[in-house]
Amino acid sequence: MSSIGKKALMAASGLVLVGFVIAHLAGNLLVYGGPSALNAYAEKLRHVPPLLWSARVFLLAAVAVHIATSVQLAIENRRARPQRYRVQRMAETTLAARTMLPSGLLVLAYVIYHLLHFTFRAAHPELSRATDALGRHDVYAMVVLSFQQPPIAFAYVVGMAAVCLHLNHGIGSAAQTLGWTDERTLRWWARAGRLLSFALFIGYISIPLSILLGLVG
């Protein structure tokens, strides 16, 4: 496949995952609505298994495409300059753009831990196996009990920082790769991407922070 084809796939799959990150935050914020709101939402998500599983398969496919194309592109980029410069000064690029590979790997590592913790409930079974009065899985208790542990909250903040850093460059870059930009909208996309990634960061980390501070729970 051509370089632009691979990059378009990487960009499109990345944007699918950005969509998920936004929707996931919207669901998570229900924690501020109390146990009934969050547990009812979690129950509803699991209510229609075919829908849940097709969404999971779709997201998993996006992750696979994103990783496969980015690894291939990164290897090709390394090969394209076998001998490095003794001195090289960067004028335009950003820290986020220079660290897409490490931030992406950190996000992947965090997502695996996160799934083991909250989805498979294997990482901290003692915190995540409660049921509420209606016999539903008590997601609210799981979240509150988990984030009352500072190491778990800290790992979460670090994971979200990696997501924020990755999207800081990723959103604007995807728009450019898919050819959605022109001279006027290029800066707009870059700025909107940075703003959105920062807003997502604040939204996500507000949950463990407010639990740690005792505002929720």
Partner: peptide, 15 residues
């Protein structure tokens, strides 16, 4: 030709 892939650093435009 073995060129790398653009990852939108925009160093090209500056140079």
């Amino acid at each position: 030709e073995g060129f790398g892939n653009c990852t939108n650093h925009y160093e090209c435009m500056a140079a």
